[in-house]
Computed example of a mutant assay.
Amino acid sequence: MAELRAMDIHSGDVVLVHASLRRLGRVVDGVGTVLASLREVIGPEGTLVVPTFTSSNSDTSRVHANRTRGMTPSDLLEYRACLPPFDAETTPSIECGLLTERVRSQPGAVRSRHPQTSFAALGPAARLLMSDHDPADHLGESSPLAKLYMKKAQVLLLGVAYESCTAFHLAEYRYSPSPPRTVYGCMIETHSGPRWWQYEDVVLDDRDFGECGLEMEGSVPVVKGRVGDADSRCFSLVEAVDFAESWLRRNRLNVGASISSYDGIR
């Protein structure tokens, strides 16, 4: 708790957390202690938010590609038919780390209902932040990220690099009037049963987020410190998104970067 407070986390804050428990090192009671400490520091008026992405529920993700590599066409059809549809109440979020799954499964937790890029939250602002996540909008203006922006949330990176900074994705929707788009596919539940659903959305490309984050440190206040054994950073989500929007405009548009075929967080 003392180390978290030294990262400029305060009572009443809304905090989007990305964490690597492995890099935190040995913690008595592990993820339980980490979650309890975060909640104690932000207090009963604060709200904790984590990503609970489910990229395995996809036919366009790297996870799907790895799991289906070498399958015959008939094997692939069978795999796709048996893939369970996303369920906000039960689908685990272990792809994003143990903390996200612990938050998701807590009594009182609220999860947004995007079938691939959901978030979960605990605290008085949880229901507001998680509501109305458009299933055709991964991380844009109809996602929890836009609401976190309006709430002036903090971003806390515990032992993870800027490549994991989900907030930068909101800037991908804003840096250009017409950012690159692609078609996504996933399994959803309908009144007539599970089915594959396809939709178009902005291409999500985190390959340059590390560079963006390091340059951001020269313009945006970033608190650096250690929590456990983990090098950690804390900064304003609003300032990070605004910086990334400008940075992407300079570095993706001005250099003519083409990312339309990137197989990223899909």
Results as ranks from 00 to 15, higher is better:
residue 207 R to C: 11
residue 110 V to F: 06
residue 181 R to K: 10
residue 208 D to F: 07
residue 2 A to T: 13
residue 152 K to I: 15
residue 9 I to S: 09
residue 263 D to G: 15
residue 9 I to D: 10
residue 60 T to P: 01
residue 179 P to Y: 15
residue 199 Y to K: 05
residue 65 A to W: 08
residue 174 R to H: 05
residue 208 D to W: 09
residue 253 L to I: 14
residue 179 P to C: 12
residue 29 D to P: 04
residue 175 Y to L: 01
residue 40 E to F: 03
residue 104 R to E: 11
residue 8 D to L: 14
residue 11 S to D: 04
residue 139 L to H: 07
residue 116 Q to I: 13
residue 238 V to E: 01
residue 243 F to N: 07
residue 15 V to E: 03
residue 106 Q to Y: 02
residue 118 S to V: 02
residue 209 F to R: 02
residue 138 H to N: 15
residue 142 S to W: 06
residue 169 H to P: 03
residue 228 G to K: 00
residue 229 D to Y: 15
residue 128 L to N: 10
residue 182 T to G: 03
residue 54 T to M: 03
residue 229 D to P: 05
residue 220 V to D: 11
residue 114 H to S: 09
residue 169 H to T: 01
residue 122 L to A: 08
residue 47 T to H: 06
residue 82 C to L: 13
residue 83 L to D: 03
residue 188 I to S: 13
residue 147 K to Y: 02
residue 189 E to P: 06
residue 94 I to Y: 12
residue 85 P to L: 03
residue 211 E to H: 04
residue 92 P to M: 13
residue 138 H to Y: 14
residue 252 R to C: 00
residue 124 P to H: 06
residue 158 L to W: 04
residue 27 V to Y: 07
residue 18 H to E: 01
residue 107 P to I: 01
residue 264 G to M: 06
residue 11 S to T: 10
residue 66 N to T: 14
residue 219 S to P: 08
residue 131 S to C: 07
residue 208 D to S: 10
residue 17 V to R: 06
residue 259 I to D: 08
residue 173 Y to I: 06
residue 234 C to P: 02
residue 98 L to K: 14
residue 13 D to P: 07
residue 103 V to K: 01
residue 79 Y to D: 14
residue 247 W to L: 00
residue 100 T to H: 11
residue 116 Q to W: 14
residue 24 L to C: 03
residue 30 G to H: 00
residue 242 D to S: 07
residue 157 L to D: 07
residue 87 D to R: 11
residue 210 G to Y: 09
residue 226 R to C: 02
residue 4 L to A: 15
residue 65 A to Y: 05
residue 186 C to Y: 00
residue 253 L to R: 09
residue 149 Y to R: 12
residue 200 E to C: 10
residue 202 V to I: 05
residue 62 R to G: 08
residue 228 G to M: 00
residue 9 I to G: 00
residue 258 S to I: 11
residue 144 P to T: 07
residue 149 Y to F: 15
residue 1 M to R: 11
residue 199 Y to F: 13
residue 244 A to S: 09
residue 187 M to H: 08
residue 36 A to L: 09
residue 154 Q to F: 04
residue 11 S to M: 10
residue 47 T to N: 03
residue 18 H to S: 07
residue 152 K to G: 15
residue 12 G to D: 02
residue 38 L to Y: 14
residue 104 R to T: 08
residue 161 A to G: 11
residue 94 I to D: 12
residue 208 D to N: 13
residue 3 E to C: 14
residue 255 V to G: 03
residue 97 G to I: 00
residue 254 N to A: 08
residue 42 I to A: 01
residue 155 V to T: 02
residue 213 G to K: 06
residue 74 S to W: 11
residue 193 G to H: 06
residue 10 H to Q: 08
residue 233 R to L: 09
residue 183 V to G: 13
residue 106 Q to C: 13
residue 30 G to M: 01
residue 217 E to K: 03
residue 149 Y to H: 06
residue 128 L to W: 12
residue 146 A to K: 06
residue 216 M to H: 00
